[in-house]
């Protein structure tokens, strides 16, 4: 085991998982505040047709090309979800379900064509569905590192603005903050984290990386800043522990272990969290409910 810990492949995977966990934790906090946790699930599924179209059109399996495709189709999906919600009586969750399944269905159609035309399986397109953390190398660690830094900078440099925008967009508008710019930036960050993350943990578990650390952290503090920091910590720790467990034996998938670790942290927070944990609730329950309503409701 000690030999494994000092090996470079393990360290690349560990570093990538920790950094991805941190980036996802922070962006997930924003998504959670906007009650858009499942948006990440929708976008990660919707990225599939973009990946495969990019492959079919360019004929290349270069990662930047595929990721660009994924990002474009993810952004289109996010836009569609918003417009369905805005222009029809259909609720956001149904809109997400529609876009998610229809885009993914289209992706499967294209994948079947790509596999037949040839080179589909060789280019490893299906790792965009299930992810494969074990084969990450130094470059992946660098990419995850850059991602984490970009996310951190964007959030903390204009933290005050984000705070108002996330909690009360109307008030933010009155204060003269370019809310639309921040909203687009938020969507962009979300899509970026997702498309970079899915090749590590896969389409389905990407949502977990974004959602779980973010809700766990809210059981420990009322300050938004600390929520962000804690989410990053929880995300990073889950990434690290998940990688450690999955390298203890052969044929163990990394992504699912990260998610299960993350869920355990969540359960601990739910019961023992000092702010809203079930054990510390007592008479504060009502005050907390009120806080939740204020905090969660952005309309």
């Amino acid at each position: 085991m000690t030999g494994l810990l000092s090996s470079s492949n393990f360290q690349w995977v560990l570093t990538s998982a920790v950094l991805l966990g941190m980036a996802a934790g922070m962006v997930g906090t924003m998504a959670n505040l906007r009650k858009q946790g499942l948006m990440s699930d929708a976008i990660s599924h919707a990225a599939l047709p973009g990946v495969i179209l990019a492959f079919l059109i360019s004929g290349e399996k270069q990662l930047p090309v595929l990721i660009t495709g994924a990002a474009i189709s993810g952004l289109i999906a996010a836009f569609f979800i918003q417009s369905i919600k805005r222009t029809t009586r259909i609720k956001e969750d149904a809109a997400m379900g529609i876009i998610l399944s229809v885009f993914f269905g289209g992706g499967i159609m294209l994948l079947s064509i790509a596999n037949r035309v040839g080179g589909g399986s060789q280019s490893g397109l299906d790792r965009f569905i299930f992810g494969q953390a074990a084969s990450m190398v130094r470059m992946d660690a660098y990419i995850m590192g850059a991602l984490a830094v970009v996310v951190m900078l964007l959030i903390f440099v204009s933290f005050k603005e984000w705070k108002v925008v996330l909690f009360d967009p109307r008030h933010a508008k009155m204060m003269g903050i370019p809310v639309r710019l921040y909203s687009s930036l938020y969507t962009l960050l979300l899509v970026l984290v997702i498309v970079i993350g899915i090749q590590a943990v896969g389409v389905i578990l990407m949502a977990a990386m974004l959602i779980i650390p973010a809700i766990s952290s809210r059981y420990w503090t009322h300050s938004l800043f600390t929520v962000f920091v804690l989410s990053a910590v929880f995300g990073g720790v889950s990434g690290g522990i998940g990688t450690l467990i999955s390298s203890s034996g052969s044929n163990l998938p990394t992504g699912p272990f990260i998610v299960v670790t993350s869920s355990l942290i969540f359960l601990l927070s739910l019961f023992f969290g000092t702010k809203k944990g079930l054990l510390f609730r007592g008479e504060k329950l009502h005050a907390n409910r009120r806080y939740l309503k204020q905090g969660g409701d952005h309309k």
Binding site: L4, N9, V13, Q132, T243, S248, S250, N251
Partner: peptide, 19 residues
């Protein structure tokens, strides 16, 4: 990977091969 490409590929598998 194992006999099928469906088998899971873990970090340990990569490291064992490198060793």
């Amino acid at each position: 990977q194992g006999l099928s490409t469906e088998d899971e590929l873990g970090i340990r598998d990569i490291q064992d091969t490198i060793d």
